[in-house]
């Protein structure tokens, strides 16, 4: 690509299609924001489905949500808020040009993301052992010919006692429970998928910065991945009270 008509400015290098660095930076941010609008609508449809069924079957949803471990959810909220904080710092240092601290913040963010996934593994593992994944093994509530519906899960036992919650009987309509867990697994699963994509993006970003790739000319790539990550955090801010803390 010819850079012959690119104006010389005092900022970083400019791609061939832009006039100056300011235009380039603003254009990237506008593009990222319009993509985030897409993401809002993407999760928005799921929140609508949640709202409808929660409104229709509030009592059942309240009873079923007691199967979720609110302490684990809270821990994940803490982890994600922290990661959002480290990303904000990473962008701050990227803007200041302090690559060393920027890399440390990005690394902390990736650690948080893995921590989030680890917590999710414990949660999902326990749910699957309890037959609460809504596939053909799904089983909820009292079963005829069985003394007590009680399934052990190694995932629960491995937890430190601080994070364990009191076991609740499986009350409520089993079909509504299946509906609840369908939406729960869809929403948290898609959110988890976004976390995994976030890890990939952060890792790629760190590698590109490390090898001083020509793709990273300024702070904007960090800011864009950061925007995406804040959005992931934003979704969880709403998921946590809506799933783990349903009031009576």
């Amino acid at each position: 690509m010819s850079h012959s008509h690119t104006k010389e400015t005092d900022g970083p290098e400019v791609y061939f299609q832009y006039e100056d660095i300011e235009q380039q930076q603003e254009t990237y941010l506008v593009g990222m924001w319009s993509f985030l609008v897409t993401e809002v609508m993407f999760f928005g449809a799921l929140f609508l489905i949640y709202t409808l069924y929660r409104w229709k079957f509030h009592d059942d949803f309240y009873l079923v949500h007691e199967q979720l471990n609110w302490k684990m959810g809270g821990l994940n909220t803490l982890i994600l808020l922290t990661s959002s904080f480290t990303v904000a710092l990473a962008v701050h240092f990227a803007q200041k040009g302090n690559t060393k601290l920027q890399m440390r913040c990005l690394f902390a963010t990736i650690l948080c993301a893995f921590g989030f996934l680890a917590v999710k593994t414990f949660e999902y593992g326990a749910k699957i052992d309890h037959n609460l994944l809504p596939n053909h093994h799904f089983q909820y509530g009292h079963v005829e010919g069985e003394e007590e519906h009680h399934v052990e899960s190694k995932w629960d036992k491995m937890l430190p006692s601080v994070l364990q919650v009191e076991k609740k009987e499986q009350h409520g309509n089993p079909q509504r429970a299946r509906l609840f867990f369908s939406i729960y697994f869809t929403m948290t699963g898609l959110h988890g998928l976004h976390v995994i994509i976030g890890i990939i993006c952060f890792t790629a970003l760190m590698i590109l910065i490390k090898i001083k790739s020509s793709l990273i000319t300024d702070y904007v790539p960090t800011e864009m991945v950061g925007l995406y990550w804040h959005f992931v955090d934003l979704v969880w801010i709403f998921l946590y009270p809506l799933y783990y803390l349903i009031p009576k």
Partner: peptide, 17 residues
């Protein structure tokens, strides 16, 4: 655009949180 003042990271000074 005469007023460009960029930090080492390429950001406008007044854009930094």
């Amino acid at each position: 655009h005469g007023h460009h003042e960029y930090t080492a990271g390429g950001a406008h000074a007044h854009h930094i949180l």
